[in-house]
Simulated scan of single mutants.
Amino acid sequence: MSELIVVRHGETEWSVSGQHTGTTDIPLTARGEQQARHLLDDLGERDFAAVLVSPRQRARRTAELAGIEEIEVVQDLTEWDYGDLEGRTTAEYLAEREAAGLGPWELFTDGAPGGEDAAAVGARVDRVLVRVRAELERGDVLVVGHSHTSRVLVARWLGLSPGHGVGFLIDAAHRGVLTYKRGVPVLQHWNVPPTS
């Protein structure tokens, strides 16, 4: 059975600090580059039917360092547009809301102020999954993207609403494997670290 392998890019300075990184195009750290070099080591030799990659340099560089030579850049795989939260941490935003007397906030439930909500990210991911399902007829597919978009992707793969992505944490340079069991989309592995 063919597999969809979902990879989050390697570490960046902002993934370490917890800053929301949607539209900002920042590079991998030296550690992120090292992570990327070993990201797929334990998968064995594979000829992917398709390798779909976010246009952000951190995702493209991760694919390159993992040894992938032929990629297709897919705009729909960009990270969540965080709008007013870009470059800020969740803790900073929650403290600001508390100081203003506002209630709790959660990205997957409430969306990003001035940016996307879960439904918008879900619509993008659904377009990617149409392509992925067609390519899985020919073999394994690799997707190299980001944290929150990948979380929505796994939710949509399983037939859940985009907001259910909140339950699928994925760390930098980690991956998941999605496949089918008796024709039903399933999550086989999630948040698997690189081997080194």
Rank of each mutant, 00 (worst) to 15 (best):
residue 75 Q to R: 14
residue 91 A to H: 08
residue 71 I to W: 08
residue 115 G to P: 11
residue 127 R to K: 13
residue 133 R to V: 08
residue 151 R to T: 01
residue 88 R to Y: 05
residue 130 V to Y: 04
residue 89 T to D: 04
residue 157 W to T: 04
residue 103 G to V: 09
residue 76 D to T: 09
residue 81 D to P: 00
residue 98 E to F: 10
residue 98 E to I: 11
residue 78 T to N: 09
residue 122 G to R: 08
residue 120 A to Q: 15
residue 119 A to S: 12
residue 83 G to A: 09
residue 111 G to Q: 07
residue 111 G to L: 06
residue 117 D to Q: 07
residue 94 L to H: 12
residue 103 G to N: 07
residue 116 E to C: 06
residue 120 A to P: 00
residue 92 E to C: 07
residue 122 G to V: 05
residue 83 G to F: 12
residue 104 P to N: 12
residue 79 E to I: 04
residue 116 E to A: 06
residue 152 V to A: 05
residue 108 F to Y: 15
residue 123 A to L: 08
residue 152 V to F: 11
residue 125 V to T: 12
residue 129 L to I: 09
residue 157 W to M: 01
residue 108 F to M: 13
residue 123 A to E: 14
residue 115 G to Q: 10
residue 99 A to Y: 02
residue 124 R to I: 10
residue 141 V to N: 02
residue 116 E to H: 10
residue 91 A to D: 14
residue 154 V to E: 02
residue 101 G to R: 08
residue 92 E to W: 09
residue 114 G to T: 10
residue 91 A to F: 00
residue 117 D to I: 08
residue 147 S to G: 15
residue 126 D to M: 03
residue 146 H to R: 00
residue 132 V to A: 01
residue 100 A to V: 09
residue 87 G to F: 12
residue 148 H to L: 06
residue 109 T to L: 13
residue 112 A to Q: 04
residue 96 E to I: 01
residue 119 A to Q: 14
residue 125 V to Q: 00
residue 80 W to V: 07
residue 150 S to R: 00
residue 90 T to Q: 14
residue 75 Q to E: 15
residue 106 E to V: 13
residue 155 A to N: 08
residue 112 A to V: 10
residue 100 A to F: 05
residue 104 P to M: 05
residue 104 P to G: 12
residue 137 E to P: 00
residue 144 V to I: 08
residue 140 D to L: 02
residue 137 E to Q: 15
residue 129 L to C: 08
residue 135 E to Y: 05
residue 86 E to F: 11
residue 137 E to F: 01
residue 86 E to I: 09
residue 95 A to Q: 15
residue 88 R to N: 08
residue 106 E to I: 06
residue 127 R to L: 12
residue 111 G to R: 07
residue 91 A to R: 14
residue 156 R to E: 10
residue 151 R to V: 00
residue 78 T to H: 14
residue 85 L to Y: 12
residue 139 G to D: 09
residue 119 A to Y: 08
residue 131 R to M: 10
residue 101 G to S: 10
residue 155 A to T: 07
residue 141 V to S: 03
residue 112 A to L: 07
residue 98 E to W: 06
residue 92 E to T: 10
residue 81 D to C: 01
residue 98 E to H: 14
residue 106 E to A: 13
residue 117 D to V: 11
residue 98 E to M: 11
residue 86 E to K: 09
residue 146 H to F: 02
residue 125 V to F: 04
residue 147 S to P: 03
residue 126 D to N: 11
residue 83 G to T: 11
residue 120 A to E: 15
residue 140 D to G: 02
residue 146 H to M: 01
residue 130 V to L: 13
residue 140 D to P: 00
residue 144 V to M: 05
residue 111 G to N: 11
residue 124 R to G: 03
residue 91 A to G: 01
residue 97 R to S: 05
residue 103 G to S: 15
residue 82 Y to V: 01
residue 104 P to Y: 00
residue 121 V to W: 12
residue 158 L to V: 06
residue 128 V to C: 03
residue 80 W to Q: 05
residue 133 R to Y: 07
residue 97 R to E: 03
residue 81 D to I: 02
residue 145 G to V: 07
residue 115 G to K: 10
